[in-house]
């Protein structure tokens, strides 16, 4: 069902957990539909220096979460905002069609975390 790369990221995901005192938090999905992704970020000089995830969901949800954290670390906010769900799926060499919309939310979660960070910076929190 899943390709080798997805399986590798599912079995050996990177950056699991939650950053303490994060600069931004993003959560998407809900338990009803079976997928929740929570991403926390640390930002220094407009760059993502740390990104961690926690995910409740299927193998695709976990693999895409891990992939987005790896893709995002080191990127500027602007570069990170250019990452899409599609680019995450492509980096995993593709997902089964049924998973493309339901479990492929990782970029949304990252963007939500960035938005949270931007909101907080604007308010000077």
């Amino acid at each position: 069902m899943y390709n080798e790369k997805v399986m590798e990221f599912f079995m050996n995901p990177k950056n699991i957990g939650e950053i303490e005192n994060p600069d931004g938090v993003g959560e998407v999905g809900n338990p009803r539909c079976g997928d929740i992704m929570r991403i926390t970020i640390k930002v220094e000089d407009d760059r993502l220096v740390d990104v961690k995830f926690k995910t409740f969901g299927c193998a695709a949800a976990i693999a895409t979460s891990s992939m987005i954290t790896e893709m995002a670390v080191g990127k500027t906010i602007k570069e990170a905002l250019a990452l899409t769900n599609r680019s995450v799926a492509d980096a995993l060499d593709g997902l089964p069609p049924i998973k493309m919309h339901c479990s492929n939310l990782a970029a949304d979660a990252l963007h939500a975390a960035i938005k949270d960070y931007q909101e907080k910076s604007r308010l000077g929190v």
Binding site: Y2, M7, F10, M11, C33, G34, D35, F56, G57, C58, A59, A61, I62, I98, K99, C102, S103
Partner: peptide
Amino acid sequence: FIEGESLLISLDLEGIAGSSGSACTSGSL
């Protein structure tokens, strides 16, 4: 706190075949 399909796939990697009523394995949402 966990989802059935990821559980099934993990079991499969250990050579154990089971099934789940999660949306991901039912082919619907």
